[in-house]
């Protein structure tokens, strides 16, 4: 029973809201996050730390771009693709953006079906999400290959400021790593959902804790965060 009490986000007694709620939650004994399980709170805190990591990358990019005396390469033409004889600016990145947003949509619905204990739909939507994510990474691989063939290196490129290459590989590389890790975990968790681990409350092999559908939501938090980071990369690196 003690285990259930810890994991259950359960119906809480009425608590004050607004500023009084913040003061009451934080000054009370034991738990600041009243109706959020430790797993979800820890994922949020991890994402907060990841936010700082990506902030530092984007900030260093901003610093090198603002301080260079050499013109910055124009991303609009660097990332243009020629399809059927017409050159469309930034089209590859636009498609990647739509793919990642779609994956976020399917993930949000997977979380919803998970809480409704609809195993098949939840797992299927997670696998669709993973497929979108894998497509995204594949397109990023294509983009990297194209740029490397054109002579972009972390220490220089044919079009302008040398710092373009290092910023590009660092930022998109780190983001792509996050997507890849997300795809791997999506597959692992969708397998657990499909197998019914969370209906039987089967214990995880690593933590030995009882499984709940909340794990799907925690996975979703991570995945939406990856999409969120891409929103900022898209705005600052590709569009600016």
């Amino acid at each position: 029973m003690a285990d259930v009490a810890l994991a259950n986000t359960g119906a809480a007694p009425t608590r004050p809201s607004g500023w009084q709620g913040i003061a009451a939650d934080w000054s009370s004994d034991q738990r600041a996050f009243k109706n959020v399980s430790w797993g979800k709170a820890m994922m949020w805190i991890f994402l907060l730390s990841d936010t700082f990591i990506f902030s530092c990358f984007l900030l260093s990019y901003m610093t090198v771009r603002m301080s260079t005396t050499v013109p910055w390469p124009n991303p609009s033409t660097v990332f243009a693709l020629t399809i059927g004889g017409t050159t469309i600016p930034l089209i590859l990145i636009a498609i990647m953006t739509f793919i990642l947003i779609s994956s976020s949509g399917t993930m949000a619905m997977a979380v919803n079906f998970g809480y409704r204990h609809d195993r098949v739909k939840s797992a299927a939507l997670m696998l669709v999400t993973a497929a979108f994510g894998a497509t995204f990474v594949g397109m990023q691989g294509f983009e990297w290959t194209k740029l490397i063939m054109e002579g972009v290196r972390p220490w220089g490129n044919p079009w302008g400021a040398d710092q373009f290459g290092s910023s590009f590989f660092m930022i998109t590389g780190f983001h792509g790593t996050h997507v890849t890790i997300g795809v791997i975990f999506l597959i692992i968790i969708s397998r657990k959902v499909l197998r019914g681990d969370f209906d039987r409350e089967a214990r995880g092999f690593f933590t030995s804790r009882k499984g709940h559908y909340e794990i799907v939501e925690i996975m979703g938090l991570y995945w939406h965060f990856v999409d969120l980071v891409w929103v900022f990369i898209f705005a600052f690196f590709y569009l600016w």
């Binding site: 809201s17 109706n35 949020w44 902030s55 979703g220 938090l221």
Partner: peptide
């Protein structure tokens, strides 16, 4: 939109909301 709806932040208590959203 992503944080509020997809990540369900809009329905969390203010204590979590402020702890996560203010530092960035």
């Amino acid at each position: 939109l992503i944080v509020a709806i997809f990540m369900h932040m809009a329905w969390e208590r203010l204590a979590l909301m402020y702890a996560i959203l203010v530092p960035p």
